[in-house]
Design a protein around this nucleic acid. Structure first.
Length: 234
DNA sequence: GCGACAG
DNA sequence: ATCTTGTCGC
C-alpha cells in the first residue's frame, strides 16, 4: 500500500488516492449471509515510545449453536510512518493490518474493521479502503461518530437510527447493548446499506462492541503486553 | 473565521 | 490510539 509522505503534497496525494478508490467502491450488493463461513475482526494498537504500530486479525467460524469460535489469530508490528489525521486514518493503520492479513492461512468471507467505512467525508474510511485492497467484503464498526447527524436510537439492544450527511444516509447508529452508548456501523466494500445491520446482529454478542472487533481489540492488547514484557526481560 | 474531528 | 484511580451501578 502506498503511504504518502507527511507534507502538503503528500496530504493532497492521499486525498486523490481516496477519491480514486471511491470509484471502485461497491455498495449496492445484496449480501448472502449464507455464504459467510469465515468472519474476521481486526484492530490496531500503538506503542508510542517505540513508534510501533501493532495490528491483529482474528478469524471466527460459527459453531452449531451459532456462536463465534476463534479459528486463527495473526499479529504484526511495523514502524509508524503516518500521523493521525482525521479522514486519513487508513494510511496510518492499514499497512500493518495488511501484513497481519498476509499471515493468515484461511481467507475471511467478511471483515469487521474498527473505524468508519462509508461514513467518511470522501466515503472512503478505513473499512472501505481495506475492503478494496483485500477485495473482500468489509463493514465499519466505529466507537464514535466522525461525521453525520442522527437521532438517538432507542435504549433497547438492537435499536437503530440513520446516520445522515448532506441528505444522504451514510451509515447506521446501532445500540448493541441496552442502555449503553451505540456504535456507528457503515458499509465498507461489497456490502450494501441494507445488509449491514443484519450482519452485525449475527455477531453482536453481549457487549457494546460486536464480537469480531471486540475480540480483535482484546487480543491485540495482549499482543502489545507480550511485546512490552519481552522488552522488559532483555 | 470558528468549531469539529474515526483511531 | 494512549495515559490513568476510584467509583457508580447492574
Amino acid at each position: 500500500m502506498k503511504v504518502p509522505d507527511l507534507n502538503p503534497a503528500g496530504y493532497r496525494e492521499a486525498v486523490l488516492i481516496q477519491n480514486r478508490l471511491r470509484k471502485k467502491l461497491i455498495l449496492q450488493t445484496s449480501f448472502d449471509k449464507n455464504n459467510v463461513n469465515i468472519i474476521a475482526g481486526c484492530d490496531n494498537s500503538i506503542i508510542k515510545e517505540k513508534n510501533l504500530m501493532l495490528a491483529g486479525v482474528i478469524l471466527f467460524k460459527f459453531n452449531e449453536a451459532k456462536e463465534l469460535v476463534i479459528i486463527e489469530k495473526t499479529f504484526s508490528k511495523g514502524k509508524i510512518n503516518f500521523p493521525y489525521i482525521p479522514g486519513l486514518l487508513s494510511f496510518r493503520e492499514i499497512p500493518t493490518l495488511l501484513s497481519a492479513f498476509k499471515k493468515l492461512k484461511n481467507k475471511p468471507d467478511l471483515i469487521f474493521a474498527d473505524g468508519q467505512g462509508y461514513a467518511h467525508p470522501r466515503r472512503m474510511g478505513l473499512a472501505s479502503h481495506l475492503g478494496i485492497i483485500l477485495n473482500t467484503p468489509t463493514i465499519g464498526v466505529a466507537k464514535s461518530r466522525y461525521i453525520g447527524v442522527f437521532k438517538e436510537p432507542g435504549k433497547r439492544k438492537g435499536s437503530v437510527t440513520d446516520l445522515v450527511d448532506k441528505d444522504e444516509i451514510i451509515g447506521k447508529v446501532f445500540r448493541n447493548r441496552a442502555n449503553v452508548k451505540p456504535v456507528f456501523i457503515s458499509p465498507g466494500h461489497l456490502v450494501g446499506m441494507n445488509d449491514i445491520i443484519n450482519l452485525v446482529k449475527m455477531v453482536s454478542g453481549k457487549f457494546r462492541i460486536p464480537v469480531p472487533t471486540r475480540i480483535a481489540h482484546i487480543e491485540t492488547g495482549k499482543f502489545r503486553m507480550e511485546l512490552l514484557n519481552n522488552v522488559k526481560k532483555k
